[in-house]
Structure formats: C-alpha cells, structure tokens
Design a protein around this nucleic acid. Structure first.
Lengths: 231, 231, 231, 231
DNA sequence: AATGAATGAGCATTCATTCAT
DNA sequence: TATGAATGAATGCTCATTCAT
C-alpha cells in the first residue's frame, strides 16, 4: 500500500494555518483554483495577506496543501471502502465499493471534484495532483494484484490498469460535472438521485469488465448489483 | 488606380498567421499553455506583439486555434483508424486500431499531448478541449453502438462508456507522459519502442475488456489484434 | 467679419480625400470623435488605412478637417441668417434669426452637434474648435457692435458678450443633446417639435435680454415672436 | 496576538490616497486629463502603479474623484456666495456675487478650470462633469425662481436659463483661459488684475440683463454691484 | 498613387510577495 | 507574531503610423 498519512498529522500546527486552508478550500470548491488568489484567501479567512507567508513559503504551497487536505479525506474514504470486509470477499465486490464511493463523492461536490481532478494551475499543485491520482491508482493497483492472484481478474499490468481506472472514473464523472456544462446552477443541469445511481452502476460495470472480472459467473449481477455494493 | 495585389498580401497575411500559430504551438509543446503569452508568441514568431491582434481577435482565440489545429489532425487520424476496412470487420479490431493510433501519437509528443489533454487554462480553450474530448467520445460511441448492435460488445450506455474510454486512454497515457515525470527531455525518461508497444497493447486489451468484447471467443486475439505485440 | 472661405476651395483636391472626410464625418456624427479611428475611417471609406497619410499629414489633421468641413456649413448658415434682410432691419431680429438657425441645426443632429461643441479629443482638433467658436463669436460680435451703434443694444464689450452668447447657446442646447442624457434613442429622450420650438424661443429671449435689446419697445414680441424670426 | 494598529495603517492608507489624488490633480491642472495616465500619476506621487488599485477600483474612478474633489469646493463657494446675506436682499445682488466668485476662481487656475469645464475624456468623468454643471445650474435655478417670484427677474424657464447661465459663464471665461490660447505660461498671456476685474464686471452685467433684472431701476448699479470694479 | 500587413510604444490592470510598524 | 499597505513585474490589448509591394 502506497498512501502515507504522515503529512496529515504534521499539518495541525496553528489555528491560523487551518483558517487559511479552510478559506482556500472553500474558494476552490466554490469557484475553482483560479479564484483562490492570495488576497481572496486572506479576506475570506480573516487573516492578513502577509500572514500567509508566515505559514506557507509561497502561495503554491498553500494551494498544494489545500489539495492534500481535500484529497486525503477522499482517498481515505475510497481506501476504507476497498478493504476486504469478510475473509475471502471477492475483489470485484471491493472494487465495486471503491468505485461507488469515489463516484458518489465526486457527484456530491462537483465543482471541487472537477478542480481536484481536472482543473490545473500551478506546477506545484499539479505535482500534488499527480500524487493524488497515484494514491487512487495505488489502491486500485493493490486490488487488481490481489484479484489477479486469486484468479478473479484477467492477467494484466496492474499499474497500467490502475491508472487507466482512475482516468476512466474521472472522465466518466467529469463529463457531467464539468463546470462548462454545469454552468447553470439551475436544477436543469443537476442529476436526480436515480440518474446518479444509474450512472454509477454503469461505470462500475465498465470497471469490472475492464479488469476482466469473472463475468461468466454473474455478468448481470456484476454489472448492476442493485446499484452496487453496500457501502 | 486600384491595385489588385490582394493575392500577394493575402498570402503574406496568411503566412504571418501561420508563423504565429506555429510559434504558439511550439511554445505549448515545449512548455505548456502557460508559456504561450502574447509577448512570447510574438518574440518567437518574430512578429510584433500588436500583429497578433490583426490575425486573432484575442489571445484566447489564438490559443484555441492552436488547440484545434493540433487536435483536428489527431481526431481525424483516430477517426480514419476506426473505419471498417473490410465488410463485416469486427468492431473490436476497429477499436483496437483507433486506440493504437491515439496512443502512438500521444506518446510521440508527450508534452503537447499532455497540454491538449490535461493542462487547462483559459475557459475559451477549455471549451475547445470539451469539443475535442467529445470528438473522440463520438468516435467511440459510434463504434460501441455498432458493436452492441452486432452482439459483439456487452450491453451498456454507449455515451458513458465512450467518455470513460477517453478518460481511460488519457490517464493511462498521461501517467507516462506527464511533464512532471518527463521533466528531463533526456533519453532517461523516454520509453523505448518496445515499452511503448507493451503499454499500448495493455491499454488496448483493457479497452476491449471494458467494452465486453466477446472474450469467450478469442481473448488473446481480441486483445492484441495485428498491431499489438504479444506480451 | 472674420470668417475665411479660402481653405474650403482648396479642399476639393481628390476624390479619395473626400471619401475619407465623409467617412470620418459620418463616424463622428454617429458615435463621436472617439469612434473615428484611422482603421474605422479607412474601412468605412473603402480606402486603405495607409492612404490616409497620402492625403493628410496625420490623423489629427484629418479630424480637424472634418471639423472644418462640418463646421463651415453650419457657420455659413448662421452667417446667412444674420445678414440684414431689409434696409434698417433691427439687429434684434437678425440675432433672433441667427440663434434660431443655430439651435435648429443643433437639435437636428444632436450627436454631431455635441461632438462639435463639446466632445473634445486631440489638441489639434481642439484648436479647430476654437476657431469654430470664434467664427460664431465673430458673427455675434459684428451684430452686437452694429446693435450698439444703432442704440438698439446696451453698452457692452462686444467681444466678451459674443463669446458668452456662444457659450449660452451651446450649454442651453447641450443639456438636451448630451449623449449621456440622450443615451436612449428611444422616443422617450427625443423632444417633440413643439418642445423644441419652446426651447428655442426661450433661448432667443434670453439672448436678446442679455444684449439689452430695447425691451421697453416690445418685450413680449422680442422674446417669443412666434417662435422667432423668419428663417 | 491580534494587532490593533488599524489607526496607523488607516492613516497611512489615507495619506497615500491623498498623494495619488494630489498628483492626479496636479497633472490635470498642468496638462489636462489626458496627461494623467496611471503611470504618470504613480510616478508623480512616488507611489507604485499597482497601488492605485488598492485605493481606487480603476483609473476612471480616480480621475472622477479628482474631478469631484476639485469641483465640490468650487460649487460650495458659489453656493455660499449665492446665499441671501440680509433679509430681502435682491436676487440680482446674489447672482452678482455668485458670478463673481465663479469667475474669480476660474481665472485663478485657468488650466484646471478648462479641464473641469471643457476638456472631456472618460465617460465616467464626463458623467461627473454633468453633475458638476448641474450643481451650478441648480444654484442659478433657485436664484432665478426666487427672483421671478419677487418680480425682480423676467418671466422665463428657470431651468433653461440656469443652464444657459452656466454656459455663458464657462465660455466667456474659457475663451481667455483656453489652454491653446494660454499656451505660454509666460506672463504674456496672463491677464492683469485690472483686466480680470473688467471682464468679470462685463460678464456680471450680461448675466443680469439676460435674467431680465429690473434694469429700468439702475442698470449701472445692477451691472457692477459691490464687488465688480467700475470700468 | 494605392495598398494593407506590420509595427511597437503605450495603456490599464492584476497579484504574489515584501516589509515597516 | 500579525498586519495590510505598498510593490512592480508582467499581461493582454489598442491604434496611429510606416513601408515593401
């Protein structure tokens, strides 16, 4: 397993630091990275602009940390979902759960999800995104390797498939949540609960097929297992 | 007397326009969209900064055109590859060809491919990217629908699967071609021909499985038809 | 009398020159001096931008000539109106006619009138405006001096009064025709014929009083002589 | 610990703002609005160009404020002069005082006065000028209405007459203070005290006549009441 | 003489970062 | 340590003018 939780605990330093991070995160979630200017973050957090540089070496680092801050939680959720619940639980079920959680969270906060997944900005942040994607990929990689070992999945390069899985998920979800499509906050562009479930089940089926999950067994089941695994 | 040197001046104008586009394209290919400032494009093209605005209404439009220019060609290639060669050619083979072309081209110019696929900037350009992804998705959508009709592919929502396919390809390729990994233009980071072929065949197999391509028949065949190297 | 008609005849030179002047004039009349850029004038006239400099040393000179072109006509009209029709015609009647003509023309083409009277731009044009105002002032100065000589008007410094008269007219008319007031081309902001006549008669009365025109005689008459003298 | 140096910094901020306004005002007074570019204002004030935008939303607003700043004072002076000093003071005397003050101030700073009255630029500033002229006109309108009510002035449309009065004053004064006439700051173009007084008395007389101020009574008196020098 | 593409200085504006208090 | 005013380099864009054809 590749994900580290070490930075996390170190980040707890000061209260001001937290306020800055929260303000930046909110701005990103509402209007994307471009809106998180130093001045805006300062104003929103009620902290002086100059003070940013007491807590972060530069703005990129602040934003990068926002990225981590927003991301660690997500990754942790997906990781938790991917853990085997019962002894000998099929990997397909675990993949299904992981995909579900990933998708649900993305569809909940579309603007943030888009920003995290696709809206790039600073190279420094881009690097963080790389790690973020890698963190997801690592989860999937582990799952795929286990699945292959158990003869459950097709033979494949687990690291390539894992990366592909992340891209598949991002794009399949980002289509609906792209800010240029979601322009209107009107109900028009918003998906119903039902539509979301349908989308998620389609994506899940796609993933399982891609991994070569033992479809002979129960193709239909695997594809739409009642909107997928219990979370 | 009214001069009719229009042909000459028109050619000249068009030439400058091309120089601007080329300079912008090169900058993007080398250092990403962010590096393609108006001043940089002007300097690189040997054209005055003000002249940009004789040829493009604004910088965003210039960049958008770079995008289109670089993109149309790619899409056309992939589309050509997706066409049925023989009557009754299986869709899996066509998907395989399309994926191969897409991947080969992306791996040829990694920085540019990354910029086109993932590096965002101006909303005007982002919109263009949306079209670009849609163009790919449309190709896949048609293939998928045809494949489903012929009973070759699993039942699925073709539009979701098509979008997912684009994401899958982008991410599986972008990992390797991400500028933060490919920092050095040195041969160090570059993949060998062999490695590239291997990567491509893995991705192809992944795609075909994801679409539910009739694996019972000839899993190995479907996975690496023609082009793709057996691993 | 101060007005010169010499430039006028010289301006007839080339046809292209005329087209440039007409195009510039139309632009000014429609949208003010600011809209009369070199490129706009060239396009509108169907003449190449570079050709402007074959006919005028610089853009300011072109615009200055537009000013003259638009202005000479106006001044000539007012001058004509100020001429004594019958032997021994009272100066008040002549002033009244001149004021009427000035006002009527201004209210007919408000945008142009505003541009000529108040919208400034280039120092070179401003200088032309100075001459323009002076040309009007000269007409009034002559009338005032004659009126004083005939005991018809109060004793006064004719040159000061004449300048003041021009300002009085301009401001009283510019209020209604100011583009920031006349924003809407809607009927709302447009004056009716009746309102215009009323405004003009008020202004005329004001002028005659200011000059000390023998009000004992016929105050009412002088003030509103049936919307003033025959044109 | 939260600092409360707000007073200090606020004072500093306000000081910089004043410096910017003063620099802009000086530039306008010396060379007109066109000379007050952002860079010039910054340099002259010894403040960084970027700092302008901490104090003003945009350049137009800065200039508009210069306008107001220069203008409010003037209008207040004229308003103060127009107030009735003794119970039952004739309106003619009040008009006379107002005109005198207006004229005196205009002749003191000719370049600035010209810029304020006649040199236009930005629509945003032009709008301010509209208000400025209206402020003067309002003062005169009130006076005229009072004068008419008291049978002191001729029957007239007070709002038209008031606007006309503003124009009369501006033009009669601007002639002498026009920058293209006053090109040289040399004493050559400057009026002597005596000449100024003469000009002012002429203008005053003109105004009073225009309003139909009871000239039968004491034409000479009305013309040069109190302030104005006998010619 | 006419063309119109090219020029480039100049403009307003933004924003991460610094530093006196 | 916190503040927030000040900084100034950088950006996209305009437009009168030039000049090769």
């Amino acid at each position: 397993m590749a994900y580290r939780e070490t930075d996390h605990t170190r980040a707890k330093k000061s209260h001001t630091r937290q306020r800055l991070l929260k303000a930046a995160r909110d701005l990103v979630a509402e209007s994307g990275f471009a809106a998180a200017t130093a001045a805006a973050v300062a104003q929103r957090s009620g902290v002086a602009a100059g003070s940013i540089y007491r807590h972060f070496p530069n703005k990129a680092e602040l934003v990068a940390e926002v990225f981590r801050y927003a991301t660690e939680h997500e990754v942790a959720n997906v990781l938790a979902a991917s853990v085997s619940l019962t002894n000998g639980e099929p990997c397909a079920a675990r993949v299904s759960r992981a995909v579900n959680i990933f998708a649900q969270r993305a569809l909940q906060g579309p603007r943030l999800a888009y920003a995290l997944i696709a809206e790039p900005v600073d190279p420094r942040v881009e690097q963080e995104r790389l790690k973020y994607r890698l963190a997801y990929a690592d989860i999937f990689e582990d799952l795929i390797e286990e699945g292959m070992a158990g003869g459950e999945f097709a033979a494949q390069d687990a690291s390539i498939s894992a990366a592909a899985m992340v891209g598949l998920l991002a794009e399949a979800l980002i289509g609906p949540l792209h800010p240029l499509r979601t322009v209107s906050t009107d109900s028009a562009a918003v998906m119903t609960e039902k539509q979301q479930q349908l989308l998620i089940s389609q994506i899940t089926a796609l993933c399982l097929r891609a991994l070569g999950a033992d479809q002979a067994d129960s193709p239909q089941n695997a594809a739409q297992p009642g909107t997928a695994a219990t979370e």
